[in-house]
Amino acid sequence: MALKVRADRWFGRLRSFRELSTVRQRRRLNTLLLGYGLLAPAVILLIVFEFYPLFSGFWISLTNWRLAKGDYIGFANYARALSDPGFWKALGITFTYSIISVPLQLGIALLLAYLLFQKIHAMSFFRMLYFMPYVTSTVASAAIWAYLFSPDIGPINRLLQSMGLEGLRWLSETRGIFQIMAARVGVDLPAALAGPSLALISLIIYTTWVFVGYDTVLFLSGLSNIPAELYDAAKVDGASGWKLFRHITFPLLSPTTFFVVLITIIGTFKAFNHIYIMTRGGPGDATTTASIYIFNQMVTYNRYGYSAALSFLTFMVILLLTILQNKIAGNRVVYD
């Protein structure tokens, strides 16, 4: 049905074109030519650098491509990935990274945005400062944080020591955070309860620092879309403080929250630059996330086919998570 409507529309266009005078026909043709000409560079670039690689990437994942073109081996790379403990561990680390980062980052951002929204003087000044880490070159800010985290000369450890606490090994600590805490009180935790490594937590602290300002800006624009009359009406009814937040702000902000959660999850799965710069996935494989693992397979071992298969598998995981998030949160999101 829709197809027929569409076809009719095209025939209609053709007919009205035929009814034009020759001069007008030529003018119309020139306009069409110009229009498609204006679109051509963008469309060609998209096809060559986005769509074509999608297909050729899938093709490469079906071969044992190393540095040079390889033979077709079917789904052998995928089968191999499923029984590759390194890849599973990397996925697990990515998942941990994501599941800690998302609430931490969003919680702080929501708090800051909500506070900034309370008719604060110098609101845009604060916003400008919060956004600074995001615009800073990743390599530079990662270098700064590598220094701040440094076990021997880093200011963070010096601060801890001045408060009478023991310094930590931060980015070079493979032990889990619960394990470290337990060791402080003299308890030896089994490996299963060790928790995420401190190296990973350090990376999460850095990521939070970078993206909180960005998320705050998003939340602020979400907050400004909530009609002020709603607050006024609720205040007349005697609501205030936490009640206002709980029953008006939070539900009406849910589309923004949903969106920010989504891009943050995707962002944590894509995260590469700062991890590569600060730890290269180490120490050991403590911070080897999926993106680092895939990169190493390609660059260190030249396994192009395998690496491509791994990126498709990771993409499936992200897709699955997105669908899951839609299912869980989708019903609770309030769209006005």
């Binding site: 229009g35 986005e50 498709f312």
Partner: peptide, 27 residues
């Protein structure tokens, strides 16, 4: 501009937002 098919082309643009950069890195 009044171009037949421009909405389809716009959808093509938006569709690329779904393609993560990581996926096309190797190719």
């Amino acid at each position: 501009m009044d171009l037949p098919g421009k909405n389809a082309i716009f959808m093509l643009f938006l569709a690329t937002l779904m393609i993560p950069g990581d996926l096309t890195l190797v190719p």
